[in-house]
């Protein structure tokens, strides 16, 4: 068996464009990821979440709350959730995330087309104004979101602060999704000491070395960053609690060698 594909959630999945497989039409961004746990209690990625209800919490602050608030105001259901695209429909992860099948279009797109674009001459929209889009049920459960995991504090076995989660490493060896695809399962966490900023992919070693000055600046900022394997995690509660002392954690630089690409 070949080694499982490894990805970093923040770097390779979050904020990428989602396109439709059949015609390359753009659907949305990967605004967040929904996680669930397998029998051993290890999280894996179940679905892509999109839309303002997924993006808002990630922006945070007043703006983020406003985005969520306004969206909820216009959604009919009691407890609306973001749009959910099951990982099983994902056929390719590259510079964009390609999904097969039919994804329901966003509510705003529909509203704008019917109420703004259709009345303009030459729009080519035949639908009559006032046409309603089939309502979508808020289909989110209270499962873990990737953005809840990223940014969470990490403490070691003695309760001493290690830092916070900057990225989540995933490997494609989780439970089967449907017939042919393995789920992306959490393989480990990249933990950075303070708010040292993003890694921008420069943790990947040889593949992310240029330009040298930028790489050097990012690496210098992250000299105290650590890589935590899933086996070293004790429990994920308000904080991520580790089963080992800080001293046993591998430095992030060690990840370069283990990364296949």
């Amino acid at each position: 068996m070949t080694t499982a594909r490894t990805l970093h959630a923040q770097l390779h999945l979050l904020d990428r464009q989602v396109v439709r497989a059949e015609d390359g039409r753009m659907i949305c961004k990967v605004d967040d990821l929904e996680l669930t746990t397998d029998e051993q209690g290890r999280p894996y990625v179940l679905a892509i979440l999109a839309g303002p209800l997924a993006l808002g919490p990630r922006i945070g602050g007043v703006v983020g709350r406003l985005v969520v608030g306004v969206t909820e105001l216009f959604r009919p259901e009691e407890d609306p959730g973001p749009q959910r695209i099951p990982m099983i429909t994902v056929s390719e992860i590259g510079s964009a995330v390609t999904v097969g099948g039919d994804v329901q279009e966003a509510a705003l797109e529909h509203w704008v087309r019917v109420n703004v674009i259709a009345p303009l001459p030459g729009s080519g929209v035949e639908t009559a104004a006032g046409e309603r889009r089939p309502a979508r049920r808020g289909d989110l459960t209270g499962r873990l979101r990737m953005s809840d995991l990223i940014g969470r504090r990490v403490v070691d076995d003695s309760g001493a602060l290690v830092g916070q989660v900057a990225d989540v490493r995933l490997s494609q060896d989780g439970p089967m999704l449907g017939e042919v695809q393995h789920a992306f399962r959490v393989a480990g966490l990249i933990v950075v000491p303070r708010h040292t900023g993003q890694l921008f992919g420069y943790e990947r070693g040889p593949a992310g070395q240029a330009p040298a000055l930028v790489a050097a600046v990012v690496r210098r900022l992250h000299r105290n960053s650590r890589y935590v394997t899933w086996e070293q995690v004790d429990v994920i509660a308000d904080d991520v609690r580790l089963a080992v002392p800080t001293a046993e954690l591998a430095p992030l630089a060690g990840l370069h060698r283990s990364m296949s690409r």
Binding site: R25, L108, H110, V112, V116, A118, G122, S123, G124, V125
Partner: peptide, 8 residues
């Protein structure tokens, strides 16, 4: 794409 496909 046609305007109706890129309404926003």
């Amino acid at each position: 794409v046609r305007p109706k496909d890129a309404a926003r």
